[in-house]
Design a protein around this nucleic acid. Structure first.
Length: 676
DNA sequence: ACGAGATTCTGG
DNA sequence: TCCGCCAGAATCTCGT
């Protein structure tokens, strides 16, 4: 494998106009077959602040490198190659390089083929190892150098601040000897990306999602256009009312100080409320409380008594523990302040917009992930005292249009299971969870639905209605549990939390609760026998093939499904690896298909002539919710809402129907809170 | 000083 | 007998 090194062509440093002309002509001829490998070395990793310094291009054979500012006079390279829509661009994390280029006014056209996404389709279980270093080595036997090896950044000392990536690049490239290594490195990623793509294209072409459709076709039809959609969304960002955040910082600090002083007074020593270790000392050693639950233990499997919110609430309720109730308040404020009120401000650009990075290749199910910052876990306004979501708003002269799917995952469960009761309930417009209460507990559907209606209208509820709503909560939990593959133990503890079951006072009562939970699951399956058949059938089929597929045919490979000690095939039992794989099998079909649907709706939206004609822009996706920005004009807002709703309800065109209709609801307003 | 792992909490 | 799915960020703790 090390012999592959000999195949790496020497990097060509482009300085003269003649060299650039020759390179442009060569690439125009040769870069169409395998795409144009494109990579930049930049001043840093900030999406909006950093800029590219070096650029490298490769067709998979020759590789070129040059100072990027030369593009401004090498128009034939810029216009004829980079802006040539007929030449696909290949890269690893290519959206990032696109942002860097866009930051200095260079806009790249053509298909965006990212090896991260290819490798993810090839093996979604290689979590965190889709990068070029890993794929080049694992697939092509190529050992890639680290940026830091070639451009080592001088560490900060007491007197001198540390070097930036840009400083290191400029210093190394100014040195006649060291710059040679810089040039070699700079050209390598572009070339390596093309080689890795060639290998992955071969593999993906040979893996069939359906008899007439390969994974490579899926990549070309769906994932390539989607990469461009995500880039556009990231580029736009979302306007943030930074004042709404800034104004809350000082008062929160004050409250935190007061709370911490009072906590320390009660505890007697300077305890740090953020330290689980110190909290364990206080609660379980000093106070001698019994642990309420234990931590997961992580990779090492060492389980410790937990000091999470559940536990603090438990101590507050059962022991009237003052420290617990203070801690709960402290935690709430500390979390909101550090992650959101303060944390988000660091990401606001000079136009008051935040640009997240939307990862296409991270999750095993096919969902997006959002990082730096994560805009997919902003607190919901009903729970959140600080109304963080209201800080996200439309640009001046615009409104946000927000549309979300109604019960998408439960509808997919109905579709895949073909359960007649479930399909019937949804088709007749019933609230599924209310209907489940009726089926499971023998209550009257109308009465349960009325209780939910009263709660939504914020009317005063009778005790009977409160009880029914608890049952509905339980049914909802059981329903989601169905999708997640819940066991009787977990359901029992959930129903205790929901105050449907009595808290167990001893081992026997716990057993009793678990048995009752088991009965509920059985009842649920009696009510929806199709769901039971779907789950069992999924397990069975997965054990034969060791994978499951989403609606579009994307794979989730689950080799663990046939691990030893997995128990029977009836889904009743089975521990460890195989049981986990069984849960994942069912969940992936539902969650992964939901992701497919949202993805398709986004692609269609982005290129929709109607939405484009009114200037509606897709900004964010939160799994089953899309956020658009459009001019604040009643007609345009209405058109946008209608059109988005229509696209979301028929993402695969008017002729494609599931067993239950998809429904989406759209709202509009100046902020993320008002637009829902 | 830096990085990995554990814990906690946010979302769908 | 053990086990609800999929994510990311902040903070603390401990090892190097």
């Amino acid at each position: 494998m090390s012999g592959t090194w000999n195949l790496i062509p020497k990097a060509e440093w482009i300085e003269t106009d003649a060299q650039a002309q020759e390179a442009a002509e060569y690439l125009q001829q040769h870069a169409r077959v395998n795409g144009l490998g494109t990579d930049t070395e930049t001043t840093g990793t900030n999406l909006v602040k950093d800029v590219p310094l070096l650029m490298s291009l490769s067709d998979g054979n020759r590789r070129f490198a040059f100072w990027i500012q030369n593009l401004f006079r090498w128009n034939w390279l810029h216009e004829g190659v980079l802006r040539n829509p007929e030449i696909p661009k290949v890269g690893t994390k290519i959206k990032f390089d696109m942002h860097m280029c866009a930051n200095i006014g260079i806009h790249i056209e053509g298909n965006l083929e990212d090896t991260l996404v290819m490798d993810w389709l090839y093996d979604e279980n290689r979590t965190g190892r889709h990068g070029l270093k890993e794929t080049a080595k694992d697939h092509c036997g190529l050992v890639m150098k680290d940026f830091k090896e070639v451009f080592p950044m001088r560490k900060a000392t007491k007197k001198v601040p540390g070097e930036t990536a840009g400083d290191a690049i400029m210093r190394v490239m100014a040195d006649p000897v060291e710059s040679l290594r810089g040039i070699e490195y700079a050209g390598l990623d572009a070339w390596g990306s093309v080689r890795v793509k060639m290998w992955l294209r071969e593999q993906l072409s040979a893996i069939m999602m359906f008899p007439d459709r390969s994974l490579w076709q899926h990549f070309c039809d769906t994932e390539i256009p989607f990469t461009r959609v995500l880039f556009n969304m990231e580029r736009r960002g979302i306007t943030t009312c930074i004042g709404h955040l800034r104004a809350q910082s000082a008062p929160m600090d004050h409250d935190l100080h007061e709370l911490e002083k009072e906590i320390v007074r009660h505890v007697g020593w300077p305890i740090n409320p953020n330290s689980a270790v110190q909290l364990r000392k206080y609660f379980f050693e000093q106070m001698g409380y019994e642990p309420h639950r234990y931590t997961d233990g992580g990779a090492s499997g060492i389980k410790q008594p937990s000091t999470d919110a559940d536990t603090l609430i438990h101590f507050k309720d059962t022991k009237q523990c003052k420290v617990s109730s203070l801690m709960i308040k402290q935690r709430e404020i500390a979390k909101a302040k550090s992650t959101y009120v303060d944390g988000l401000q660091d990401w606001v650009d000079r136009f008051f917009r935040i640009h997240t990075t939307l990862n296409q290749h991270v999750t095993v199910s096919g969902r997006l992930s959002s990082v730096e910052p994560n805009l997919q876990n902003i607190p919901r306004p009903d729970e959140d005292k600080f109304k963080i979501r209201a800080a996200f708003c439309a640009a001046l002269g615009c409104v946000l249009v927000i549309a979300d799917y109604d019960q998408l995952e439960m509808k997919l469960m109905a579709h895949f299971s073909q359960d007649p009761e479930m399909i019937g309930a949804i088709r007749s417009g019933k609230d599924l969870h209310c209907y489940t209460v009726a089926l499971m507990y023998g209550e009257n559907y109308e009465e349960v639905a009325e209780a939910k209606h009263c709660k939504e209208k914020k009317m005063t509820l009778t005790d009977r209605q409160k009880h029914l709503l608890l049952l509905r909560q339980a049914a909802k939990n059981t329903g989601f549990g169905l999708i997640y593959g819940i066991g009787p133990m977990k359901l029992a503890s959930q129903l205790v939390d929901a105050k449907v079951f009595q808290p167990p006072r001893n081992e026997a009562e716990l057993k009793e609760n678990i048995k009752k939970a088991k009965d509920l699951i059985n009842k649920y399956f009696m009510a929806f026998p199709g769901a039971k058949a779907f789950i069992d059938g999924t397990h069975q089929r997965c054990m034969e093939t060791e994978y499951v597929q989403t609606l579009m045919g994307r794979f989730r490979r689950l080799p663990g499904i046939n691990a030893k000690g997995g128990g029977g095939v009836d889904g009743e039992d089975g521990g460890g690896i195989a049981a986990e794989a069984r849960r994942q099998a069912v969940n992936t079909i539902i969650q992964g298909t939901a992701a497919d649907i949202a993805k398709q709706a986004m692609i269609v939206s982005e290129y929709d002539p109607v939405l484009n004609s009114i200037g509606a822009k897709l900004l964010l996706q939160i799994h089953d919710e899309l956020i658009f920005e459009v001019e604040d004009d009643p007609e345009k807002v209405n058109t946008c809402k209608k059109r988005v709703q229509d696209i979301m309800e028929h993402p695969f065109g008017p002729d494609f129907e599931l067993s239950v209709r998809l429904t989406a609801a759209a709202g509009s307003g100046y902020t993320w809170v008002d637009a829902k």
